[in-house]
């Protein structure tokens, strides 16, 4: 098999600055998205994901400039999520140099938006982001419900059905985050990842909970994810993307070295 499993560092951006602490030993400005992107690119990141967590809409324009700058220097795929609500938002980000946009809350409120977006821009640039929380008890068949607004609002929608519906509507990729694991550093919810990955034809990116290199490898082997996304494990300089790839390669996982 030739296709490599991808490692995707994720950067949270607030008003044009990377937040949640990015610490590289030899970086001039740890809050500058361009510097951070350049560093991950040098380490061998396969793609980059920017999550715009800017609360006020009048600062959205800042993110467009961030994307423009990064796209002018870093020649790997860029995904931008957060605040993508209408076709104009997608066009603005693609024109700025993003390759894909992540749609989350807006997809739940208006599923037709995903269909429209895929028809207009092509499935290859539409990533549907799903925040899932386990609702089944210990001895029940596993089930997960999707949440919106950064994992704060339950929707009553089943995750697997939703993922299938979104791919039917034209999503080209699913970014799947376990709300139970996000921020815990306990590893991915592998059962969730595997269940969704097996249920859809499009690639699935596992997200939420990475604390060790072994967790990244498990996302692929146990979770059958096509790509793994992580933030803090790379931000704090514990591990480089290159180390993660070496580790995965030793376990027989195909990666781009």
């Amino acid at each position: 098999m030739g296709l490599a499993k991808r490692i995707i560092p994720c950067l949270d951006v607030d008003a044009g600055r990377v937040v949640k602490g990015v610490q590289f030993v030899d970086i001039r400005d740890a809050g500058d998205p361009v510097e951070v992107a350049r560093r991950y690119d040098e380490q061998g990141a396969d793609e980059l994901t920017f999550l715009d967590i800017t609360a006020s809409s009048d600062q959205r324009e800042t993110m467009v400039h961030v994307v423009e700058q990064v796209a002018g220097e870093v020649f790997i795929p860029l995904t931008v999520g957060g605040g993508i609500r209408e076709v104009a938002d997608i066009r603005r980000m693609l024109n700025a140099g993003a390759d894909k946009v992540g749609i989350n809350t807006a997809a739940v409120f208006n599923p037709e938006f995903v269909k429209e977006a895929a028809q207009r821009f092509g499935s290859q640039c539409i990533v549907v982001a799903i925040d899932a929380k386990r609702t089944s008890g210990e001895h029940e068949p596993p089930a997960w419900e999707i949440y919106t607004h950064g994992g704060r609002k339950p929707t009553g929608i089943d995750t697997v059905e939703w993922a299938q519906r979104m791919t039917d509507y034209g999503a080209g990729e699913i970014l799947l985050t376990s709300m139970d694991r996000d921020g815990t550093r306990d590893g991915f919810d592998l059962e969730l990842t595997r269940t969704v990955s097996d249920a859809v034809d499009v690639p699935v990116i596992a997200s939420g909970g990475v604390g060790t290199l072994q967790h990244l490898a498990e996302g692929v082997t146990g979770g059958r994810a096509d790509a793994v996304l992580a933030a803090s494990i790379f931000h704090f300089g514990e591990h480089t993307v290159g180390e993660a790839k070496q580790y995965m390669a030793k376990q027989g996982i195909e990666v781009r070295l």
């Binding site: 030739g2 296709l3 490599a4 499993k5 991808r6 396969d46 499935s123 290859q124 080209g172 990729e173 859809v200 034809d201 499009v202 690639p203 699935v204 096509d226 790509a227 781009r256």
Partner: peptide
Amino acid sequence: LKIPHMGWN
């Protein structure tokens, strides 16, 4: 194998 063929090959 997923479709689209997406990633580094």
